[in-house]
């Protein structure tokens, strides 16, 4: 858990420093945080030992719902 947080903190810190220095537009921040927040949330859950159902499973369920797969 702590390691996950530390790794993300370092990554975000590095990138943000760069972004702020270059005065990036807001949308860069938005997209960046979208990805990072999703990653962080999932990896925290994974680190806690609670695997949320994954996109792979959603897709499988979706395909089954449509009836492409049995």
């Amino acid at each position: 858990m702590a390691i996950v947080l530390a790794v993300f903190a370092v990554l975000i810190f590095y990138d943000l420093k760069e972004f702020i220095r270059k005065k990036e537009p807001a949308r860069v921040f938005v997209i960046y945080f979208l990805f990072m927040a999703a990653s962080l949330a999932v990896s925290l859950l994974l680190a806690a030992g609670r695997r949320p159902s994954s996109p792979a499973q959603w897709i499988e369920a979706l395909l089954k719902m449509i009836g492409v797969m049995q």
């Binding site: 990653s39 990896s43 994954s54 996109p55 792979a56």
Partner: peptide, 10 residues
């Protein structure tokens, strides 16, 4: 980063 997380998560 997201790819890495997704690959483990999947």
């Amino acid at each position: 980063t997201f790819c890495v997380v997704l690959s483990i998560w999947g």
